[in-house]
């Protein structure tokens, strides 16, 4: 490993050719104040980025056991069912992804690259507004973030549900998959919205919103139509 705890990782999964440097035990989050929306599977299993496959398996089994117990004690409503399905899908996906070193590295690199790309776009947008340079970065970021979320949220979570070990631990079956597809699509878009909300405006000019004026307008709309 290079001095200073830095190591070079090379990732060349489909559509991604990134040479990337980062501190192994460092926090990539420090590059950006906000990394919400980029699903962090290490966090889901309460692990750090150096966790060994054995630890991944151990934490997954413990968390899944706790979850299954919690489900067995709960009175199931539609909202709770959706919540538990999502939690189960997240654990399954985290386990499937992190137990394999190659897929874990690819995932983590893509995530890091996205965080950096977001930062680059923010800086370019701050420098030059909606100019060609920042627009090119925006397009690249938008396409990458969509593909990241599709791959690591929807597809991975559904695929993980078919894994033998996951099926054994979570009793995931076809009925779960049927219900989960809608829930996962919703979750993916929620994550995308979380990211979108902190990004520079590009489809519209940054709005100047006076919330007191908004309240008065809403009041007038309601009073006008309700009188």
């Amino acid at each position: 490993m290079p001095a200073g705890g830095r190591r070079q990782w090379s990732c060349s999964t489909a559509g991604w050719k990134i040479e990337y440097h980062f501190a192994l035990s460092g926090k990539i989050e420090s590059m950006s104040d906000n990394v919400q929306g980029y699903v962090n599977y290490f966090e889901i299993l309460d692990l750090d980025e150096t966790a060994k496959p054995g630890e991944v398996r151990k934490n997954y089994r413990k968390k899944m056991k706790d979850l299954v117990f919690e489900i067995s004690q709960a009175q199931i409503t539609e909202e709770r069912r959706a919540h538990y399905l999502l939690e189960m899908a997240k654990l399954n996906a985290a386990f499937c992804l992190l137990r394999d070193t190659a897929s874990r590295e690819a995932y983590w690199n893509e995530r890091r690259y996205l965080i950096e790309l977001e930062e680059m776009w923010r800086e370019a947008a701050a420098r030059s507004g909606n100019a060609v340079e920042s627009d090119a970065l925006r397009r690249e970021f938008d396409s990458k973030v969509r593909s990241f979320l599709a791959k690591y949220v929807e597809e991975l979570m559904l695929d993980a549900g078919r894994d033998k070990e996951c099926v054994e631990a979570s009793n995931w079956d076809e009925a779960h998959e049927r219900h989960a597809s809608r829930i996962l699509r919703y979750y993916r878009h929620r994550l995308y919205q979380q990211i979108l909300e902190r990004l520079p405006y590009y489809e519209v000019t940054p709005p100047r919103i006076d919330w007191e004026e908004r309240q008065r307008t809403i009041g007038r709309i309601l009073a006008g139509s309700a009188s």
Binding site: Y202, V204, T205, P207
Partner: peptide, 11 residues
């Protein structure tokens, strides 16, 4: 390029 629409009109 895609236009940036004026937010005051959208509001």
């Amino acid at each position: 390029r895609p236009a940036q629409m004026p937010s005051e009109l959208l509001m």
